[in-house]
């Protein structure tokens, strides 16, 4: 995946607030050019602001997913 030379596709993965392990992996994948973006899932709660800060620091282009009906 790391030797992808051209932007054949624009691939991303979803990360939830507070999932630092997944975000760390996605940062590595982005640096390898294996992915091009992330989708940040908004889930109201105590992890949200810290999670948003972490995603901001990562500097990866992002889409946002609004809370689901299962998020209250």
């Amino acid at each position: 995946m790391g030797d992808r030379q051209l932007a054949d596709y624009n691939l991303g993965c979803t990360v939830r607030p507070g999932d630092a392990a997944t975000l760390a992996l996605l940062v590595d994948l982005y640096e390898e050019r294996a992915i091009d973006h992330i989708q940040f899932q908004v889930i109201p709660g105590e992890n949200l602001r810290k999670g948003l800060e972490a995603v901001t620091e990562a500097g990866i282009p992002a889409a946002i997913h609004a809370p689901y009906h299962s998020h209250g």
Partner: peptide, 11 residues
């Protein structure tokens, strides 16, 4: 863009 969506054991 195409986003993969997994919830459990995401890493």
């Amino acid at each position: 863009p195409t986003t993969l969506e997994y919830k459990e054991n995401a890493r």
